[in-house]
Amino acid sequence: MSEVKYSKEHEWIKLEGDVATIGITKHATEMLGDIVFTELPEKGSNVEKNGTAGVVESTKAASDVYTPVSGEVIDTNQVIVDDPSKINEDPEGSAWFFKLKMKDPSEMDTLMNKDDYDKFAKETSA
């Protein structure tokens, strides 16, 4: 069984067992425009909740990617480094950013569910 949550920094987090897969939302890609550069955290590194864990750049500007939960980076998605435009094509599917072995699964509780996120995204972009 898996659960998907969302952060105020426009990341999505899918938890399967103690492994969290993290990416950016469709709404985030629409705000960013064409993504042309991606930098991901190193495999084996530890990232802290709300810390930076990568960069995406559009033709216009660079934006940090934050991790909404803490853990050890166990995998990164080289596909989006080699072809960042994949993020615009399928942000909430094949264009995931990195996978974490979560330290504290209860961190998921502080994040938004889909309905709350959609509302949040709508309000903040208006």
Partner: peptide, 10 residues
């Protein structure tokens, strides 16, 4: 206008 619906790259 900075861009339209097609986006900067297109």
């Amino acid at each position: 206008p900075i861009q339209y619906s097609d986006g900067i790259v297109e």
